[in-house]
């Protein structure tokens, strides 16, 4: 398990978190990139759809019911580990939307061109910011949504911090 050495999750380690193709085609859906048994369960509590469960208790892995998840994004800012992302493949054949938690300043604005980064901080390429959500409900964890080429839908997980 390379992630135990501080590496990013591999495709194989992520396999169980990737929603089925058929579900991805239908609309935005969460990807819960939480693969370690740690004592943590706010995602279960906050999902308005009751789509996340933790069979076996606090120290077990979260399980997302893709059918119940409607892609609302509440969990993206509510996960203490900032480990939940929203993926939307309904933006046409070549594009995808990725919503990610972003706790840095300055916050990008809608329409900004930013550099998309993968799980290891490698540059993927410039992308457009299409939505920025902030406010009291998000409790200082804003959500930035970027439009990316579809091939990056499962790879783009951050953006280069502005002004750096």
């Amino acid at each position: 398990m390379a992630y135990k050495k501080g590496d990013a999750l591999t495709a194989r380690e992520l396999a169980a978190q990737i929603p089925p193709k058929e579900r991805l085609r239908r609309g935005p859906v969460a990807m819960v990139e939480c693969v370690e048994e740690i004592p943590c369960n706010p995602c279960v509590e906050i999902c308005p759809q009751g789509a996340i469960s933790m069979p076996g208790g606090l120290n077990k892995l979260p399980r997302l019911d893709w059918e119940k998840c409607n892609g609302c994004g509440v969990c993206v800012s509510g996960c203490p580990g900032l480990a939940i992302f929203m993926v939307d493949l309904t933006e046409g054949r070549d594009r995808a939307k990725v919503a990610l938690p972003y706790e840095f300043i300055p916050l990008p604005e809608k329409g900004d061109k930013v550099m998309a980064l993968d799980r290891e901080g490698n540059e993927l390429g410039p992308v457009d910011v299409i939505r920025v959500q902030k406010g009291k409900r998000l409790d200082r964890t804003p959500i930035v949504t970027i439009a990316v080429p579809r091939k990056w839908a499962l790879a783009a997980r951050s953006i280069r911090r502005l002004g750096r």
């Binding site: 992630y3 135990k4 050495k5 590496d7 999750l9 370690e36 580990g81 799980r119 901080g121 997980r157």
Partner: peptide, 18 residues
């Protein structure tokens, strides 16, 4: 040989390029 902390904490700084 292994990090002692949670992967999710490591992931936050790794995707920021650290």
């Amino acid at each position: 040989p292994y990090i002692g902390g949670y992967h999710v904490h490591a992931a936050k700084i790794r995707r920021a390029g650290v």
